[in-house]
Structures are given as C-alpha cells and as structure tokens.
Computed example of a mutant assay.
Amino acid sequence: MFDYKLLAALAAVVEQAGFERAAQVLGLSQSAVSQRIKLLEARAGQPVLVRATPPTPTETGRRLLNHVQQVRLLERDLHSQVPGLDAGGRPERLRIALNADSLATWWAAALGEFCASHSVLLELLVEDQDVGLKRMRAGDVAACVCASAQPIGGARAVLLGAMRYRALASPAFLSRHFPLGVSPAQLTQTPAIVFGPDDLLQHRYLAALGVEGGFQHHLCPSSEGFVQMVKAGLGWGLLPEMQVQDELRRGELLELLAQQPIDVPLYWHHWRTGGELLAELTRHLARSTALISPVK
C-alpha cells in the first residue's frame, strides 16, 4: 500500500522545482519534505530523485509520479460525483510527451481554451514522434502524441491527422549545390539537417525516393532552430508545411523536388484509467484536427 503523503511530497518537489517551494505548497517545513522523500526512497529501496538544481526524478521516481497523476485524475472524478468532497481547488497537472514540430505549430492553439476552462497545467516532454510512446511504456506520462498507431496495454490511440513535410532549402543553397537541378542521388552528397539521433524522417524520405545508405547531416534539436538553419543555407531539411507557409510564399525557402511531400500520421495515446479529464481532452483534440493536415 502506497503512502500518498510521501508520493505527494515527491510530486511537489518535482513540480515546484525544489524542496523550499514544495514545502510552501504542502504547508510543511523543508526538513519535513526532505524526510518524506528519504522515507519514500527507503521503502522503494532506491533513489527517487536526483539531487540537482532543479531536482529531477529517477526512472523509479518517474513511474511513481505517473501513478500519482493517475490517482489525481481519478480523484478529480470522485470530487465531481460525491457531494461534500473537497477538491482542493488546485489546477490539475498533466505530463504529456509531444514532438517538437507539433509544439511549434498546432498544439498551443488546440489546447489553449481547454486548459483555461478545465484548470489544467501542462508538463510537456519533447520527444520525436517516432519515440514518444516509449515515455508511456515507461510509465512516465499520462498521454503522448506520436506516429505509432498501436497502443500499449492499458491505453487507447486516436488518429488526429497527419503533418505534411516538404524537403526544402534556401535559394542560395540550391544554387550552390544543385545548379543543374536536384536529383535524389545527389541529396546524400549535400548537408541535410536532422532533428536528432532518433529522427528517421529524412531516412524514410530518401528511401521513398529509392536512395539508401547514410548521408551528411547537421543535428539540430530545436524546431525553430531547424527552420533558421535551413533558411540560412546550412543544409536541406524536411519541414512541416504549416510551419513555413510565409517563407514559402516569400520565396525564402524552395522545394527540392516538386510534389514529393511525406505525411507523418499523428496519434494521441492516453491511459484508459486517466479518468474523465483525459477523456474530455481526447474528445477536444479529436475536434481540433482541422489544425492538422488530413490523412490522404
């Protein structure tokens, strides 16, 4: 049986980014919060926090935090169903894994009204769309946006739509590297820009063109920085069409191969035991799919 006072101390330390502010939120002394964390670690038989600035959860700590979140969501339902229960009046915090391109484009517009009307705080973990589901499998988040259609055990998946990517480069880059026009085979010999080591989108794009093997590339783990690097002529890259409409219209970015986009499906995965709040959020996102390109 979990001692939820100990778990609440862990959640407060992580959410408030320190022991002092956690103590203020919980109405305890800083020493008392520290003692609760130590007792939790003694019972777990291993550390639940990395004592850094700010403190961060260990793998065991993340699993415990996810359990706390699920319990809070279920308690939220009980508060609305059982008269007289004190809900505490605190906003609900949701830990969600999300790919950087969604965060840079449609996500904020889709969630703004919902978070305001439902008193929700978001804790976003930015992951590539191909690997975000690992966070749920590890018990780290309550939901994620990723490219996989297959939900893990105990979760549901809903197709939101797809993001259309186009291979783009600056006019100067095209003039320098492809003065006679672009051929697929040439793309491996010119610098590309890749989001990170887990980003396989460029690999899939080249494979669809019949080009296999490695290619030269920069690594840029920032969606906005990615656009700036392509505009500056450091390399070519696959960019979300909806993120660069203005650059395309002004001619600051040009497509390498006309009519050769690649669509990445986006699925919303959430725990079945997430309570009515997650269910409402799922319905809200399903209604907001006009913000994303439809799946062809």
Rank of each mutant, 00 (worst) to 15 (best):
L201Y: 01
Q202K: 05
Q202V: 06
Q202I: 05
H203N: 08
H203K: 08
H203S: 14
H203C: 06
H203I: 02
R204C: 08
Y205K: 07
Y205I: 01
L206T: 01
L206M: 07
L206D: 09
L206N: 02
A207S: 14
A207G: 07
A207E: 15
L209A: 12
L209D: 12
L209Q: 15
G210M: 15
G210E: 10
V211R: 10
V211N: 13
V211G: 06
V211Q: 12
E212S: 14
E212H: 03
E212A: 15
E212R: 04
G213D: 09
G213Y: 10
G213H: 09
G214M: 12
G214C: 11
G214W: 11
F215Y: 15
Q216C: 07
H217I: 03
H217L: 05
H217G: 04
H217M: 04
H217S: 15
H218M: 03
H218E: 09
H218R: 07
H218P: 02
H218Q: 10
H218W: 11
L219R: 10
C220L: 07
C220N: 11
P221I: 03
S222F: 00
S223D: 11
S223C: 10
E224S: 13
G225L: 03
F226L: 08
F226N: 00
F226K: 00
V227I: 15
Q228L: 12
Q228K: 06
M229W: 05
V230Y: 00
V230P: 02
V230D: 02
K231C: 11
K231A: 12
K231D: 05
K231W: 02
K231T: 04
A232I: 03
A232P: 09
A232D: 14
G233L: 04
L234M: 11
L234K: 04
G235Q: 04
G235K: 02
G235P: 04
W236Q: 13
W236T: 04
W236S: 09
G237T: 05
G237R: 01
L238G: 06
L238C: 07
L239P: 03
L239D: 02
L239N: 03
P240N: 08
P240H: 08
P240R: 06
E241I: 03
E241L: 15
E241R: 11
